[in-house]
């Protein structure tokens, strides 16, 4: 069953193409990892799918309800909001209030993501991994069957990532979710995703993980700004960027 169909999608910002002639299909139950260098159009693609960008050429069809997790750096961590209120956003939008049933549902969801003892904590006091799980809980409370995750693992330690992906698999199995994830971490995408899309304005490859080799990718992208998973690749990346 088809969940997302994109045909000849092009997005232009002024004279500059963010995406050019991109076509693909995503089936129900797929776990798709979108990889590509900075400025490849990964986030733009997600923005088109969620309807934030409407000025494009081509055709985009979505069959299902989307839950969206923006990059974690969009959260204003200085603002004093408790975790329970934070994850309840989709429930509030439905009726513009929180009923007792909805509050219980949100608490159950917090328990599922292992944050039941953090319900009254401030979002700003959560670790990167905890905030990632809280954002996942928020997306799942929207009753979505398609999850779009924009770099969910940036700023999260290895332990946090591991917990997050275990959770993601559990929810995927439980709710037959289709997951589309943008990531900078090629190694992680190869490890976790069933399908890979390599994007750099145009779609360079799209297929099952086992048919795409990391070496081929490196060759294809040339000066890639992410590092193939290996020893301390994150530290290397951060050091390179802070120069």
């Amino acid at each position: 069953m088809m969940k997302i169909r994109v045909e000849n999608l092009s997005v232009k910002f002024g004279e500059y193409y963010a995406l050019k002639d991109v076509s693909f299909e995503i089936k129900a139950g797929d776990f798709v990892g979108i990889i590509g260098p900075n400025g490849a159009g990964k986030t733009t693609l997600l923005k088109v799918i969620i309807g934030e960008i409407r000025d494009y050429n081509g055709k985009v069809e979505v069959y299902g309800k989307i839950g969206y997790q923006p990059q974690l750096n969009t959260v204003n961590r200085e603002f004093p909001m408790d975790v329970l209120t934070y994850i309840s956003l989709p429930l509030y939008v439905k009726n513009r209030r929180f009923s007792k049933i909805e509050k219980e549902r949100a608490l159950k969801m917090l328990k599922k993501v292992g944050l039941e003892d953090k319900a009254n904590d401030l979002v700003g006091n959560l670790s990167g991994g905890e905030l990632q799980r809280a954002s996942l809980a928020r997306a799942l409370l929207s009753d979505a069957d398609i999850l779009l995750l924009d770099e969910p693992d940036s700023g999260v330690d290895e332990m946090g990532k591991s917990t997050f992906y275990e959770l993601l698999y559990d929810f995927k199995k439980e709710g037959n979710l289709t997951i589309v994830m943008v990531s900078h971490d090629i190694g992680l995408v190869f490890k976790e995703c069933s399908t890979i899309m390599c994007l750099n304005k145009t779609l360079h490859c799209h297929g099952p993980t086992e048919k795409i080799s990391p070496d081929k990718l490196k060759e294809m992208f040339g000066q890639f700004d992410v590092w193939i998973r290996g020893d301390k690749h994150y530290e290397i990346e951060h050091r390179e960027r802070s120069k």
Partner: peptide, 19 residues
């Protein structure tokens, strides 16, 4: 009240979910 708090807390997510 709530809309304002969600807007300040995470504008992107607030917009996506319908605020």
């Amino acid at each position: 009240w709530r809309d304002i708090t969600y807007y300040i807390s995470d504008e992107k997510a607030a917009q996506f979910y319908g605020i």
